[in-house]
Amino acid sequence: MTETGKGDGEYIRRFHPLRIIEHQANAIAFIVLVVTGLSQKFHDSSWSDWAIMNLGGIDNTRLIHRYTGLLLGYLTFQHILIASYGVIAKKWMPFMVINIKDFTDAIDNLKYYFGITDSPARCDRYDYKQKFEYWGVIIGGILMALTGLTLWFPTKVFHLIPFLPGQIIPAAKALHTNEALLAFLVIVIWHVYNSVFSPDVFPLDTAIFTGKISKERMIHEHPIEYERLTGVKLEDHSEKDVAETEEEPDIKSAS
């Protein structure tokens, strides 16, 4: 989002090392939170028992969960600060901001999947799928941090906001636990698919580890950004894509 490297032979720099560290820290915190949190949510299951007992009991599990939660909360907070600072003071381009094109892209892609159009949506630095995940993490992170703190300090909440009804505690729990499940499922299904199992990247999208992306994938997945970075128009490529996709339905219909 902040750094856009120059074309480097076959590879193009996509992420600044700080963003890589940030992602890895987020990933580790998320995994720890999932293990310690879901094992509390599904406390009846045997693997929860196994996890909690091996973490040294329920009190230890909660301790780990809470401090890891603090870490993730901090990372989210820091990210918002840096991103805001970057966009406002350093004139970074706000690539992550959702715009109308994201919705049309999603519809275009669906059309493409159903074979109504012949080419996928042409995306910029971040496509709508990535924006969806990004904002999920930001909003979910804020939600989890607030509800988590409420559950951690249940009596303080009433001192802070005295008119709150008692119900706010079970409500915070409901929100925390449901949002956690949603986040877990989205990450496991959507994120893991898009960065590991998707045929575009299989066996692994290494961009977030190396910080680099191949020119080929860049042209395929982020054509608009590629054009902006290099100044090369990619019409030929899209035509070629069209030509390729045109052949396929014939084969399919023949068979």
Binding site: P154, T155, F158, H159, P162, L164, P165, G166, Q167, I168, I169, P170, A171, A174
Partner: peptide, 21 residues
């Protein structure tokens, strides 16, 4: 605080009347 015990919504399944939120 006095309202703190209400955070235990008794032994009821949360429903629209007792714990709408």
């Amino acid at each position: 605080s006095e309202s703190f015990p209400d955070s235990w919504i008794s032994h009821y399944e949360p429903n629209f009347k007792r714990a709408p939120l």
